[in-house]
Amino acid sequence: MEYKEQSFEAVIEVGSECEDCTIVHGWLYDGSKWVLHAWGETEEAVYDLTESRDPQHRDEYYKNHGVTEERLRRYSRVEFFTLLGDTKHFGPYDKELFFATTSDVDPLKK
Rank of each mutant, 00 (worst) to 15 (best):
V14F: 13
I12N: 15
S16C: 14
P107F: 00
F8L: 06
F81I: 07
S32H: 09
T42I: 08
S7N: 05
R58Q: 05
K63E: 04
S32G: 09
K110A: 08
F98S: 04
V14D: 07
L28W: 03
G40N: 13
H37G: 01
G91N: 01
K88V: 03
T68W: 04
V35E: 01
E43M: 12
H89W: 04
Q56E: 05
D94A: 10
H65D: 00
M1N: 09
P55H: 07
T87M: 08
Q6D: 13
F81M: 10
D106G: 09
G31I: 01
F98V: 05
D104R: 13
D106L: 07
L28P: 09
G31Q: 02
Y29L: 01
Y47N: 09
F80V: 08
G85M: 14
E17T: 15
A10G: 12
V67W: 03
V14P: 11
E69Q: 13
L72N: 08
E96L: 12
D86C: 10
E41W: 11
E19S: 15
W34R: 03
H57S: 14
E60M: 11
V35D: 00
K33T: 02
E2V: 12
D106I: 06
W34Q: 04
W27D: 00
G26L: 03
D54P: 10
A45L: 15
K88L: 03
E5N: 15
Q56W: 07
V24D: 05
L36E: 04
L108Y: 04
K95I: 02
P92Y: 03
E2Y: 14
T50D: 02
L72P: 10
T101H: 12
N64K: 14
D106E: 05
Y29A: 01
H89R: 09
E60F: 15
A45T: 12
R73L: 07
Y62F: 15
V46L: 05
F81T: 10
E41H: 10
K109N: 07
E17W: 14
R74Y: 10
K110G: 15
G66R: 01
